[in-house]
């Protein structure tokens, strides 16, 4: 699947590994399920290629909180674009757990959600084949005002804070 990072198409070096798939060469970065991680932790951690973890939308960040240092990437599943749990999970990874690696949205998301995903801490999204990547690039610039605090934005009350200086003339 094409991959978008910072609004641009990028190459995807990561391999999504099934629970029974053999490990590829040691320098190929892999994404595994939580079950596979717990089963094969010893062989997965410490390879030269990075390790990524796949989190279903029903799984909770606290399930991986103790192992975050092992992961260069967390893939959050969006089974349907209407399932918004990933937004809260991403923000929680950044805000509460201090995770600094890649957060990738996989599954079904719309370009219309991209800006919100980024503001919640997502760094990459997989997009469907055949879609125009320009839509995602455009989505980043579509709305330039945010009223809320976000992990990707200013750490104050965002645009609510503008009211601190009373702007009668605005």
């Amino acid at each position: 699947m094409p991959l978008i990072d910072s609004g641009k198409l990028v190459d995807d070096a990561w391999v999504r590994l099934g629970d029974d798939d053999a490990l590829p060469a040691a320098d190929v970065p892999v994404i595994v399920s939580l079950a596979r991680f717990h089963k094969d932790r010893a062989s997965l951690v410490g390879r030269n290629g990075g390790l990524g973890i796949f989190l279903a939308s029903s799984q909770h960040p606290k399930d991986i909180a103790d192992h975050l240092a092992d992961f260069a990437l967390v893939a959050l599943d969006f089974p349907k674009f209407r399932d918004g749990r990933g937004f809260t999970i991403a923000r929680e990874l950044r805000e509460h757990l201090g995770y600094r690696g890649i957060i990738r949205a996989v599954g079904h998301t719309l370009p219309d959600q991209y800006l919100a995903l980024v503001r919640c801490g997502v760094t990459q999204v997989e997009i469907p084949e055949g879609r125009d990547p320009a839509l995602w690039a455009h989505a980043l610039a579509e709305i330039s005002t945010a009223y809320q605090v976000s992990v990707a934005g200013p750490l104050s009350m965002a645009r609510l804070a503008r009211h601190k200086k009373t702007e009668h003339a605005a």
Partner: peptide
């Protein structure tokens, strides 16, 4: 203002 296009709570 706070709820307008809230990035986390739109879905």
């Amino acid at each position: 203002q706070w709820s307008t296009l809230h990035p986390e709570f739109s879905f």
